[in-house]
């Protein structure tokens, strides 16, 4: 039995026992998607439902997104990044800790659909995976891809692949990867202002302002999002590049010190924008200035809710 199958088995067993034991009213996990390379969110409310739960390398969505405002007791199938988000949700009063059961899945990385499409541009009808490879089939062809070649970039620098604060882990811990050293950003920062601005403008030039990134993000639980404000209207409704830029900058600022690099936003983007680039600039700043990483403790205080009298800020004259 492959490791993935073992994890699926464990998730189902635990999900059933949680529902049967009344520790959870619903288990939020994944089932096999209706399209290839996709695991869909699934709400298991009965032990029978649990048999549909699966674990795969296509579980890119962050299910912590379903926690805010929920009243039932939730068992959350969570990767390392998702679990940290769930912890953040608790700290931000979006979901009570005592109702939450984090069913942690030590994660070996999730597959990037865009990377797959780059390697296999033909239409894909089915995808099957083993622990280290993916078999794609389409009209008249079949391709094997090595999984490590098509993992999402955030998965390649994940320092917390094993959930840190899970109520239970469904499998053995997986080793941490060297954390994001932001070397690409550092290289970018060495370039001129003009070049950087061009880079970031190009990055978002295809943005449709569909807000799929926002909708996929578990941090974006605001009752009214600034993009929908009318008094005042923060953001024009057109696709003026400056409005689009403003959207991405403010979205980044709102996630600063809270983003766990789960990549759900990039997964959701229909035009494959690396929207997390803005978050990464801020992640880097948060880490460098305040040595802060979100979601590692229940009582952490996000960096914008506290201060040090001597916070270094040499740029302030």
């Amino acid at each position: 039995m492959s490791n993935l199958d073992t994890l699926t088995q464990k998730i189902r067993e635990k999900a059933k026992s949680l529902l049967e034991g009344g520790q959870a009213d619903v288990v939020i996990g994944y089932r096999t998607g209706t399209v290839p390379l996709m695991a869909a969110p699934f709400f298991a409310r009965t032990p029978q439902d649990c048999d549909q739960l699966v674990w795969s390398s296509f579980a890119r969505l962050n299910l912590a997104n379903y926690l805010p405002g929920r009243t039932e007791k939730v068992a959350l199938v969570a990767k390392g990044c998702d679990a940290r988000n769930a912890v953040g949700q608790v700290a931000e009063n979006q979901y009570p800790k005592d109702k939450l059961f984090i069913l942690g899945v030590p994660c070996s990385g999730q597959v990037d659909a865009a990377k797959v499409a780059a390697k296999e541009p033909r239409p894909i009808q089915t995808s099957e995976e083993t622990d280290d490879s993916i078999k794609l089939t389409g009209p008249g062809y079949s391709t094997d891809l090595k999984k490590e070649d098509v993992l999402r970039r955030n998965c390649l620098t994940c320092a917390h692949r094993t959930p840190t604060l899970a109520n239970e882990l469904v499998g053995p811990e997986v080793p941490s990867l060297p954390t994001d050293d932001f070397s690409d950003l550092t290289a970018l920062l060495a370039k001129s202002s003009e070049e950087r601005l061009t880079y970031f403008k190009d990055l978002i030039k295809d943005c449709l302002r569909c807000y799929a990134c926002r909708n996929a993000c578990p941090l974006c639980y605001c009752p009214v999002c600034f993009v929908d404000e009318t008094r005042p209207q923060w953001l024009g409704k057109s696709t003026d590049p400056m409005d689009t830029m403003t959207f991405h900058l403010l979205r980044g600022l709102h996630c600063a010190g809270r983003c766990t690099a789960c990549g759900a936003c990039e997964t959701a983007c229909p035009v494959n924008i690396k929207v997390r680039e803005f978050n990464r600039v801020l992640d880097k700043t948060v880490k460098e200035n305040w040595s802060y990483e979100p979601g590692l403790a229940w009582d952490q205080k996000p960096p914008l809710t506290v201060y040090q009298p001597n916070d270094p800020a040499d740029f302030i004259k």
Binding site: E92, N93, Q94, C222, K301, P302, T305, V306
Partner: peptide, 25 residues
Amino acid sequence: QNRCSGCGVCKSVCPYSAIDLDDKG
């Protein structure tokens, strides 16, 4: 309150402790 998610940021940053969360959070 229609816009309030109850996240508590305002409460944390108020220098006068003038903000609290009510029973609805």
